[in-house]
């Protein structure tokens, strides 16, 4: 049943066994084609395997399941060097969450739009408290150096 499959999926995900996890998501999606959580997990697995092309393809081929996965879509575009597309995806999102703002900062840095990038970093740093604060300040230093 689905509950057992999700338990198995959760286990493989926690172990970083993304091959097995994808197989389980496929089983769930065969039984329940509209299951957004299983689909989300499948996309996460593909990204974790650095298969950004396939992740973006499944997102684009399943618009009924992917409408809320704008962070994942933009992240794939960013890693595929479709940086302008990534920025469009981010800016088309209403009420972007902190994950999207974080990615927006990275996208703007890649686009060498340093003034906007600085604004985004200041906002993200102000509104986060997690394990990445040191890395964020390193990135902020790179932005301010680029503005000199």
């Amino acid at each position: 049943n689905l509950s057992a499959l999700f338990t198995e999926l959760n286990k493989h995900g926690q172990n970083g066994d993304y091959d097995r996890a994808i197989k389980v998501t496929n089983k769930i999606l065969k039984a329940a084609p509209g299951d957004k959580k299983a689909f989300h997990c499948k996309v996460i697995c593909l990204i974790q395997q650095s298969d950004f092309r396939q992740a973006l393809k499944v997102l684009q081929d399943n618009s009924n399941l992917s409408s809320e996965l704008t962070f994942e879509k933009a992240y794939c575009q960013y890693r595929l060097n479709a940086v302008r597309d990534a920025l469009s995806t981010i800016r088309d999102t209403i009420n972007p969450d902190i994950k999207l703002k974080e990615l927006e900062g990275q996208v703007l840095y890649r686009l060498e739009e340093y003034e906007d990038c600085l604004d985004v970093y200041r906002d993200v740093i102000k509104n986060t408290s997690d394990d990445y604060e040191e890395e964020r300040h390193t990135n902020l230093s790179a932005v301010t150096a680029a503005l000199q």
Binding site: S3, F6, N10, K37, I44, F71, K99, E102, E135, R136
Partner: peptide, 21 residues
Amino acid sequence: KPLFFDIAFNHVEFPSLEDKV
């Protein structure tokens, strides 16, 4: 080239499956 981290990758995470298991 200055150091610049891909912090966003850390946000690529499974959603909570608590309501599914």
